[in-house]
């Protein structure tokens, strides 16, 4: 697994985490190149469907991040998101998706360091977990046999 480079899809809010990633860039912090950010206005916009679709499209892990409670540009989008994530993360764990495959975080516009550190940490963890073959190999065509794990 040494050569395995994970694909990580991130959904981030534009006001905090996207800006935090900008700050990490402006500060020239280095972190692994495995994460692709998809920008949304608010974590409240992030749908559980996005996470499933990212996995279907070959993501080995998903990162979801936004403003800390109290910092939300829209006051409470992140607090609604938190409830959804609470339920959805438990659901994914229940059906056997390793909790290391979905990371939730709060990263503010000032936390460039936290962003860089988190990307480094998540990438290392997913490297250790290996490719998400069990999801990727689920058949996409009718009639194929299950070969999960």
């Amino acid at each position: 697994m040494a050569d395995f480079e994970p694909n990580i899809t991130a959904f981030v809010c534009t006001w905090c985490t996207y800006a935090g990633a900008d700050l990490a860039g402006t500060s020239r912090m280095k972190y692994p190149a495995n994460v692709r950010l998809i920008r949304v206005p608010c974590t409240g916009r992030i749908d559980a469907l996005f996470i499933l679709k990212a996995f279907e499209n070959g993501a080995d892990a998903v990162l979801v991040s936004g403003c800390h409670p109290g910092d939300c540009h829209y006051t409470s989008g992140n607090l609604h998101a938190r409830r959804r994530w609470t339920v959805f993360s438990e659901l994914l764990d229940f059906v056997g998706i390793d909790s290391g495959r979905v990371t939730f975080s709060w990263i503010s516009a000032a936390e460039g360091r936290k962003f860089a550190d988190l990307i480094t940490e998540v990438t290392a963890k997913v490297r250790a977990l290996g490719p998400f073959d069990s999801y990727r190999k689920m058949s996409a065509a009718a009639g194929e046999q299950s070969n999960a794990r």
């Binding site: 206005p41 608010c42 409240g44 916009r45 992030i46 829209y74 989008g77 998101a81």
Partner: peptide
């Protein structure tokens, strides 16, 4: 509307 999109996910 301030465009946060919280409604869409709901």
């Amino acid at each position: 509307c301030i465009g946060c999109g919280t409604c869409v996910a709901a």
